[in-house]
Nucleic acid binder design. Structure first.
Lengths: 227, 227
DNA sequence: GATGCAACTTGAACATGTTCAAGTTCACGT
DNA sequence: ACGTGAACTTGAACATGTTCAAGTTGCATC
């Protein structure tokens, strides 16, 4: 069965959009688990079976949600990507924008994380069905690096986007647990880690770190390609 | 409702043990999802309700499984912990022992990872119900460090066990995806990362890294305490 | 206009994790 | 012996994600 069906008619598009909108609203109101597929269908004004016609499972609604937030993220970072040239500032702004964009969904983000982290699910970050979105995010970070005025060695430039994608997932995991007001702790961690990373990149050419650098890059490659 | 009930009678202990053994066997034979609570109860020779008397949920059987593998792990590393003094070797052996110990369960390990990673569940690694086990594992890594002949700064010694616990979880996540024969890729990654970590620890006193060191330790502290 | 076909829709039926009120067992004090 | 109460056991009932065979709609082709 296909992951999710692209409607072929305007009526179908309406149904699909209504289902996703209902799901998003209910997730926010009641949380992920407490939202039943029946409630989603009811709110969308379609039958239970129709929901499964457009989304193969409840988890696939989550994948759509990720696509949705990615679009919001892209829109949010447009200006800074066009203007800012300093790598640290670009990174900081882009990653800050991730958590700011996701803030309205913080309450139920925790509940869906396991869905996405599940290595068995084809929806997991390394899996088949999320490949398109994953590549988009990695490309975004490639753009963050390329659009900066930082001069980095080729071997680092090759792996950095993937590393930053992993880093973003780590930040989101921290953010999920963050209960500080305004999620200030996460923002602080972002500021510190982005600055730290860029500093370490600057040190990568030091003789003492030369040996480690190749190994680290090899590891990133290993981890990224999964298994 | 309590997490899991400690039997007060011998009969109760038998029932509880039978349920866990049945669950473990069925998980291995059919995988996690395909194993129903009814099948577990049937194989254990008890009723469905009795299973829920001893384990509050299917996930709690997973927590018991983690306790079980932790005991296996402890038994496996006894000799090397008593003999070996080199930090790199101690680390490598201890982490290798983790994946070797878990190897018989590799097929269904992926399915239960999401259970444990779920930030909403009290069973998640940072959560309340897994605190006892988490502390045990962190203590183990404190012992790995303390029992070595490495001389490390106090601030590093304070955070290193927690960092190594996080590292172990990362290794397990990689291992879950690893489809190489004999899980050789994971073992290789372990060898490389342990050596790399110890090398970087040795460089922590270099002037260029002094500034980053404090920040990194602060970050580890932030991340570890969760939110 | 008639026909056919793909897209779309439906809700009953199913599987399974979980709850719960009711029943049973048994060690212990009297 | 008897009563008591905690520990243990039971399976029917429930909620909900998912499947599927059957029905409806609407458009393109003749």
């Amino acid at each position: 069965m296909s992951a999710l069906l692209q409607p072929k008619t305007v009526k179908g598009e309406h149904s699909r959009a209504a289902i996703f909108e209902a799901a998003l609203a209910l997730f926010q109101e009641r949380g992920y688990e407490a939202t039943t597929m029946r409630a989603i269908a009811g709110r969308a004004g379609v039958s239970l079976g129709s929901s499964y016609h457009y989304f193969a499972s409840k988890e696939h609604l989550v994948l759509e949600f990720y696509r949705h937030t990615h679009q919001l993220h892209l829109a949010a970072i447009g200006p800074v990507m066009a203007r800012e040239r300093d790598l640290t500032a670009r990174l900081r702004n882009v990653v800050r924008a991730v958590v700011v964009t996701c803030e309205p969904f913080h309450d139920f983000a925790g509940a869906i994380f396991s869905t996405v982290a599940n290595p068995v699910s084809p929806l997991n970050p390394f899996g088949k069905e999320s490949k398109a979105l994953r590549d988009e995010v990695i490309d975004l970070y490639a753009e963050v690096v390329k659009g900066s005025d930082a001069r980095l060695p080729d071997d680092i430039v090759a792996e950095l986007p993937t590393l930053l994608w992993l880093y973003q997932m780590g930040v989101l995991y921290f953010w999920i647990f963050d209960k500080s007001p305004g999620r200030l702790r996460t923002l602080e961690v972002i500021d510190q880690t982005t600055e730290l990373m860029v500093r370490l990149l600057g040190l990568a050419n030091l003789p003492v770190l030369r040996g480690s650098r190749k190994k680290i890059l090899g590891l990133v490659r290993s981890v990224a390609q999964g298994a």
